[in-house]
């Protein structure tokens, strides 16, 4: 049945949105910074994995792991090296700086790897699902399973561990968190580490899925991730996961209609405008 097949596509797309938006949401939730460079981290994860695959080993898991590590460290570096010094400035300052970092990263990738698309020749043994109604390819199943795993782990970290509690406290009142003994810098750095590693994972997964890596692969992602964060209600992790899935569903199903001759990537923004007009705090936000 076509419906189920479309649902599979939507799940895969929604997984990538959710993985990227989580990091953005967490950063926004705590620092109130619109971290545009997060999409650069996504691309960086993909390029790191590409380096591993082309120079080290074709093993997908190694590529994924190293891609996530590189992305996580790059995230921490951006925080400690840049945001840390400008957090107390008006909010427009970190925003513009962030856009600058993102552009610089894109150009850096172009310089280092050239403006072309690279194939992503990782190998992976993973099952697939074939039923009379729908097909889930190896790569699709991988994305769905891994995203589920990451979301589950994230849920546990956020709700059952000390650092999760510390993050919640930080996002509600950063200076108060310091007053009750939370080492705020450390908590924020860990937050960047985790959020960026997830964005890196999304980059690697999408590179593998689409079999291509290119310098500007983060562009559309950057804009969409913001839509997802806004829809999800600024800083609510659960909200942005749901919003990511919702956006993917709408895009996939509208895009599959024959009479729908609208650019698919514009749907997100139409949705954004509608939501902001009628529910400015986002679908799940409390503001």
């Amino acid at each position: 049945m076509d419906f189920l097949q479309q649902l599979v596509f939507a799940l895969v797309l929604g997984s990538s949105y959710a993985l990227i938006a989580i990091g953005l949401t967490m950063v926004y939730g705590i620092l109130k910074v619109l971290h545009v460079a997060h999409a650069g981290i996504y691309t960086l994860g993909a390029y790191m994995a590409l380096l591993v695959v082309t120079h080290l080993t074709r093993n997908f898991w190694v590529a994924l792991l190293l891609g996530m590590v590189a992305a996580g460290l790059a995230g921490v570096l951006i925080y400690r090296g840049v945001y840390y010094y400008i957090l107390r400035r008006p909010r427009i300052v970190p925003l513009i700086v962030s856009i600058g970092i993102f552009t610089a990263m894109n150009e850096l990738f172009r310089l280092l790897f050239g403006p072309y698309q690279h194939a992503f020749p990782a190998v992976l043994r993973f099952p697939m699902v074939i039923t009379p109604y729908f097909l889930i390819t190896q790569k699709q199943l991988l994305i769905i399973v891994l995203t589920t795993f990451f979301l589950l782990m994230l849920y546990l970290v956020l709700n059952k561990t000390r650092v999760g509690l510390a993050w919640q406290a930080c996002s509600q009142d950063l200076s108060m968190a310091g007053a009750v003994g939370v080492p705020v810098d450390w908590a924020v750095a860990l937050n960047f580490l985790l959020g960026s590693a997830l964005a890196g994972a999304a980059g690697v997964l999408m590179a593998f899925y689409r079999n291509m890596v290119y310098p500007t692969m983060g562009n559309v992602v950057a804009y969409k991730a913001f839509v997802v964060v806004v829809l999800g209600g600024f800083g609510s992790v659960r909200g942005s996961v749901i919003a990511g899935m919702l956006l993917a569903l709408v895009e996939t199903f509208l895009g599959s209609l024959e009479w729908f001759n609208f650019p698919r990537d514009a749907i997100a923004f139409l949705l954004l405008i509608l939501v902001l007009m009628f529910r400015p705090k986002g679908l799940f936000g409390r503001l």
Binding site: L165, G181, V182, P183
Partner: peptide, 18 residues
Amino acid sequence: LVAWGHRYYRKTGPFRPY
């Protein structure tokens, strides 16, 4: 609990359950 955790945040591993 947030306050109680202050002596552990850096020591026993941030991802330990509380």
